[in-house]
């Protein structure tokens, strides 16, 4: 399962961040690393991106990038 599949209002735990290069590094730099819990707060009015809470702050992630984050 990836972060893209998590429903609004649910929390998931990161298993792995896939992908490579700038996007992957950026995702991890922002605190999405193995073991962290992510709360999916809401989806943007046009359906993308999604707003999540991670490490106590709000982050906006595109669904295409959310697909790179494996969660459980």
């Amino acid at each position: 399962m990836t972060l893209k599949d998590v429903k609004t209002g649910d929390t998931a735990k990161v298993v792995k961040v896939c992908g490579e290069g700038a996007v992957k590094r950026r995702i991890m730099d922002m605190g999405i690393t193995k073991g962290v819990e992510i709360f999916v707060r809401k989806v943007a009015p046009l359906g993308d991106p999604v707003e999540v809470t991670v490490r106590g702050y709000e982050l906006s992630v595109r669904k295409a990038d959310a697909e790179m984050i494996e969660v459980e």
């Binding site: 290069g21 700038a22 996007v23 950026r26 995702i27 922002m30 991106p49 707003e51 702050y57 709000e58 982050l59 906006s60 992630v61 595109r62 990038d65």
Partner: peptide, 12 residues
């Protein structure tokens, strides 16, 4: 170049 990641903080 690499696609720009859109992983953006939504500040308080």
């Amino acid at each position: 170049g690499d696609p720009a990641p859109f992983v953006m903080e939504l500040p308080a």
